[in-house]
Simulated assay, not measured.
Amino acid sequence: MSARVSVFPVRPAAEAEGASLRNVDALVERGLVAAEARAPLDAVARRYAVSLTPAVAALIDPSDPADPMARQFVPDAAELVTAPEELADPIGDAAHSPVEGVVHRYPDRALLKLVHACPVYCRFCFRREMVGPGGDALTGEKLDAAFAYLAARKEIWEVVMTGGDPLILSARRVREITARLAGLDHVKVTRWHTRVPMVQPERITADYARALLVPGKASYLAVHANHPREFTPAARAALARLADAGHVLISQSVLLKGVNADVATLSALMRAFVENRVKPYYLHHPDLAPGTGHFRLSLAEGQALVKSLRGHLSGLCQPTYILDIPGGAGKIPVGPAFLSGCETPGSGGVAEDRDGRLHAYPPA
Rank of each mutant, 00 (worst) to 15 (best):
G132M: 03
H294A: 07
C125S: 11
V214G: 12
G164K: 04
R47N: 00
P9R: 12
V120Q: 00
R153V: 14
R38G: 10
P363T: 09
L266G: 09
C122A: 12
A16P: 06
L255F: 06
M130V: 09
L27V: 12
R191A: 04
S347P: 03
T232S: 06
G291C: 04
A16T: 10
H96K: 01
A94Y: 00
V24Y: 03
A337Q: 15
A77H: 07
H284P: 07
A148R: 11
F295V: 02
L358Q: 13
A304S: 02
F8H: 15
R123Y: 05
R4G: 05
F126Y: 14
L242A: 12
E29R: 11
G31C: 09
P98W: 00
R71S: 02
P290F: 07
G135Q: 05
V214R: 15
P107K: 01
A235Q: 04
E301L: 10
F231Q: 09
R172H: 14
L297F: 00
D144I: 10
S170F: 11
S298E: 10
A225N: 04
D144Q: 15
P319G: 08
M69D: 00
Q303M: 14
V99M: 06
I91K: 00
R310L: 14
S219H: 12
A243E: 04
A152H: 01
L255G: 03
P280V: 06
Y220E: 05
H224T: 11
P286I: 04
G18A: 12
L212Q: 07
T232E: 00
A43W: 07
P228C: 06
G327K: 13
S2H: 12
P280H: 04
Q252D: 11
Y121S: 03
V131D: 01
H227S: 12
A146M: 10
P9L: 08
C118P: 02
G140V: 05
S63I: 02
Y208F: 14
A237D: 03
L21R: 05
V259G: 00
R30A: 15
D108R: 03
T292V: 06
E158Q: 08
D42G: 07
V44F: 01
P90G: 01
S314R: 09
G346T: 07
A211N: 10
D25M: 09
P133C: 08
D165A: 08
A14H: 03
D89C: 01
I322C: 08
A37G: 07
A211E: 11
Y106S: 06
S20P: 15
H312E: 13
R38H: 09
V81K: 09
G356Y: 05
P107Q: 00
V189M: 05
S347H: 13
A45W: 13
L242N: 07
P84V: 01
H104M: 02
V159Y: 04
G31F: 08
